[in-house]
């Protein structure tokens, strides 16, 4: 990588207080980078901390340890000051387009919130129209209210709003989960097209592996607050090195000429408040062996990184080398 990362996480931890469970570490040390023009997919199952990480990435919550940097500067958690001009380049698209647009304000007024103050007079309205065209919505949408649009259209409008300040980096947190098949594809293609056309970076968070496979340049797999494997998407799918990655890929139902049930992964995701010691995947891992009682280090294997004792040639039994 010769281009510097536009968004980088270094050993980020996020804790929240939960009634009856004490402090819960939802994100337990994540390091990840997103470069300009790059789509990084972050996959994982519910409760793995991916949404918590997304909120910390844009400053909606503060990490309890580690740093999130955007364009080389630490992201300031949102507080009493308006967001600074530099950080406005970091935007987010939320999961639920029914909650991410204010029901009582027109679309135009909400888009204007993000149009830079340097744009004045009639140019502001022109900018709103431009943004709507960019997401393939009619300019008449500016005068209308969110409830007049379908879920897919709302998500496109929410994307237009995120584009208003000309962002350089987009965090998309499950942006198509609430949408139907038809609109899912439209919204995904729109996001991918924007990243490529505008040379933005995108952290695309999803539980849908197949979808991430389709669009991401790099895929990071998260389990219980940690990234267990990150690699160029193609390599990750061709040859997953972490048993959890393997299990996730195998659990995706495939279309084929005869019914074939997806493989089952034993057990359930533990409560992050009572995370297992050592490797957090150990209780469910079919390959677990003695060294797994210790937290495995994240090993850099050229273009991929894996946190698994199996990749350590000193400890790994040879049988388990290929998963």
């Amino acid at each position: 990588m010769n281009t510097p990362a536009r968004l980088s996480f270094t050993d980020v931890e996020v804790e929240y207080r939960s009634r009856g469970r004490g402090r819960v570490r939802a994100v337990a040390g994540v390091s990840l980078e997103v470069s300009p023009g790059q789509i990084v997919g972050l996959v994982g199952e519910s409760g793995c901390g991916k949404s918590t990480l997304a909120r910390a990435a844009v400053g909606l919550s503060a990490p309890s340890a580690g740093t999130v940097e955007y364009a080389g500067r630490p992201v300031t958690p949102l507080g009493w000051r308006p967001r600074s001009g530099a950080e406005v380049g970091l935007q987010m698209v939320f999961q639920n387009p029914y909650a991410s647009l204010n029901p009582r304000r027109t679309i135009g007024s909400q888009l204007l919130d993000g149009v830079p103050a340097a744009v004045t007079g009639s140019a502001r309205r022109a900018r709103v129209h431009e943004l709507l065209e960019r997401v393939a919505m009619p300019t008449s949408a500016a005068q209308r209210y969110p409830h007049q649009f379908s879920g897919g259209q709302r998500q496109r409008l929410a994307i237009a709003r995120a584009l208003a300040p000309e962002p350089r980096m987009i965090i998309a947190d499950e942006p198509v989960t609430a949408l139907d098949a038809s609109s899912q594809a439209q919204v995904v293609n729109l996001l991918v097209g924007l990243v490529r056309d505008l040379d933005m970076g995108m952290l695309f968070i999803s539980h849908d592996l197949a979808l991430v496979h389709e669009i991401a340049d790099v895929t990071a797999v998260m389990y219980l607050g940690r990234i267990v494997e990150a690699a160029p998407t193609r390599e990750l799918w061709r040859e997953p090195r972490h048993p959890y990655t393997r299990a996730l890929i195998d659990a995706v139902p495939q279309i084929g000429p005869t019914p074939r049930l997806p493989a089952i992964l034993a057990g359930e995701v533990p409560d992050p408040a009572n995370a297992p010691t050592g490797c957090r995947f150990r209780p469910r891992c079919p390959h677990a062996f003695a060294p797994c009682g210790e937290q495995p280090p994240t090993v850099d294997l050229g273009d991929r990184s894996v946190a698994c004792w199996l990749t350590d040639s000193a400890t790994a039994p040879t049988v388990a080398r290929s998963l």
Partner: peptide
């Protein structure tokens, strides 16, 4: 906690 509020804040709208 509604996301439209978060979205507005992220766009630089002051509190």
């Amino acid at each position: 906690g509604d996301d439209y509020l978060n979205a507005a804040r992220l766009l630089g709208v002051g509190p």
